[in-house]
């Protein structure tokens, strides 16, 4: 499902300008939305999910306009949303919780609903815990319950808001692999501030900073923003004072620094291969108001 935003703004009641004119076109497949804390990712996703009304601008999801009541209902029928601050009823089992949400999503036919819940519990590898109360679940298991509830209605659009925050590395990798598998023929919009998650799963991404879109395009393009801007400096003296140090490793008697800077931070600096994270940092450096 294609997402088209134009001139989208959102100003909260207190006067916070969370989104300041977003123009964005998201194709089918896995799409990353990067941004630091407070950039406006959650605000954007809540608007897409029909939970928040934009202050101005248009939002079209596969031809439906979410700002109208009919459009919102049409979108919500084919939407899966995993919120950043997902909660569950601790006194229900995973199966019961999913059944409750499935009923709310209009899966009225009982055998079909049961089958679907059973399948999804297997997909998220919770089959053997399905009849335990959710209060005993770990953070990673809860996140998987969250993705299972989002998938109940077989959505064409899946919105996941920082799903990997707080997960251990194995669980994080498992989770993002699961998301890539789900992408297939649907649109998966993944927001995160963990660059690595996007690097490993998305071909296209957008970067939000302070309510503005500062980048949209494919991953390679963002990496190339750091071309000729990444350096390694090996020194026994002080850290380089220009540019941004992204890594510092003990090396022999001194340190080896990895630095993102437009010019060599040190006469001894040697150029290095940029990663997506370097591209992101270079972009943020460039976008930061002087």
């Amino acid at each position: 499902m294609r997402i088209q935003l134009s001139q989208l703004t959102k100003t909260y009641k207190g006067g916070v300008h969370a989104l300041k004119g977003i123009d964005l076109d998201v194709p089918t497949g896995m799409y990353g939305l990067l941004g630091s804390n407070g950039a406006g990712k959650t605000t954007l996703m809540r608007i897409l999910a029909g939970l928040l009304r934009p202050t101005s601008g248009t939002v079209r999801l596969g031809g439906d306009d979410v700002t109208t009541k009919e459009g919102r209902l049409a979108v919500q029928r084919t939407l899966g949303y995993l919120p950043q601050d997902l909660g569950v009823y601790p006194d229900l089992t995973a199966r019961q919780f999913l059944d409750y949400i499935a009923l709310l999503k209009g899966l009225d036919e009982r055998p079909g609903r049961r089958r679907r819940i059973g399948e999804l519990l297997e997909v998220v590898a919770l089959g053997e815990h399905a009849d335990r109360r959710l209060k005993g679940y770990s953070g990673g298991m809860l996140r998987r319950v969250g993705i299972a509830q989002a998938l109940l209605n077989d959505p064409r659009l899946l919105i996941v808001d920082e799903p990997t925050t707080g997960l251990d590395p194995e669980e994080r990798i498992r989770f993002r692999t699961l998301l890539s598998h789900l992408a297939g023929e649907r649109t998966v919009l993944l927001s995160t501030h963990i660059v690595e998650d996007v690097a490993q799963t998305c071909r296209y991404l957008a970067v939000l900073a302070k309510g503005r879109l500062v980048f949209q395009g494919d991953v390679g393009e963002l990496v190339s923003r750091a071309d000729r801007q990444v350096w390694t400096v090996t020194t026994s003296g002080a850290a380089p004072s220009t540019g941004r140090v992204v890594a510092a490793l003990p090396h022999g008697s001194g340190m080896r620094y990895r630095v993102v800077a437009p010019v060599p931070p040190d006469p001894m600096a040697r150029p290095a291969e940029p990663t997506l994270e370097d591209g992101y940092l270079a972009l943020m450096e460039a976008a930061a108001p002087v």
Partner: peptide, 8 residues
């Protein structure tokens, strides 16, 4: 949030 995002 997820309940509000459902079409119910």
């Amino acid at each position: 949030t997820i309940m509000d995002a459902s079409s119910a």
